[in-house]
Amino acid sequence: MALHAKKAVGRLSVHVYDAPVRIWHWVNAFSILTLALTGYFIGSPLTSVSGEASANYLMGRIRFIHFAAAQILTVLLILRVYWVFVGGVHARQIFYMPIWSGRFWKEWSHEVRWYMFMGRQPRKHPGHNPLARFTMFLMFTLPLFFMVITGFALYSDGAGRDSWEYVLFGWVFSIWPNSQDIHTDHHLGMWVILIFAIVHIYVVVREDIMSSQSIISSMFSGERLSKDMED
């Protein structure tokens, strides 16, 4: 990784995000926003609709969209995990943290200083900077798995004790026997991810403007351009 970073400085553009990662990013972002919106309305439903029950399916539809987005998100997450193993080094970054590496923490503190206006220049990182990686791992990757696990456990409530969802995720009830607790935690998980998204979008926009590398366009093209070289 250190090698990469060195090399990157010398090159105009470096390939960081493989196509599957990019596709995943955008589908994932879209699914999560859908899940958050529909999830919110599952927790606090809209004002009642009038007419016969048989003629309406508002809550059913909201839940359907939630579950559909959840399935899409899950399938892509599985593919994304597959890509952790076959994709490039950058594909792996947000799935583990090298907490044992002194260098990671040094660079991490450098980033923290930069965001606290204490550093003059952000270091250049072809993939994620250590702080981004750290935040993504804690506030996105782990919560996302949590959401999928608790989400499918909740789904098994309705799918039944004989469903594959229950077979795979029923163990969650051994931790939280009352599924109301799972609802609450699943709901809190949404807020963790939403807060991540807010910070994330702010940071990428800011970095795009402030730093000397391409940021947002990288998530479209996959290439990281060094603006210094362009200058």
Binding site: Q180, D181, T184, L188, W191
Partner: peptide, 30 residues
């Protein structure tokens, strides 16, 4: 259900979570 007494008010759809001494539901906390 296990612990059904401690899921906040029976009239709230969203459970109250005790956080730092005050209680609020997931949406309020979020």
């Amino acid at each position: 259900e296990q612990g059904f007494w401690d899921q906040g008010s029976f009239y709230d759809r969203l459970t109250n979570v005790e956080q730092f001494g005050i209680e609020a539901n997931a949406d309020k906390i979020g």
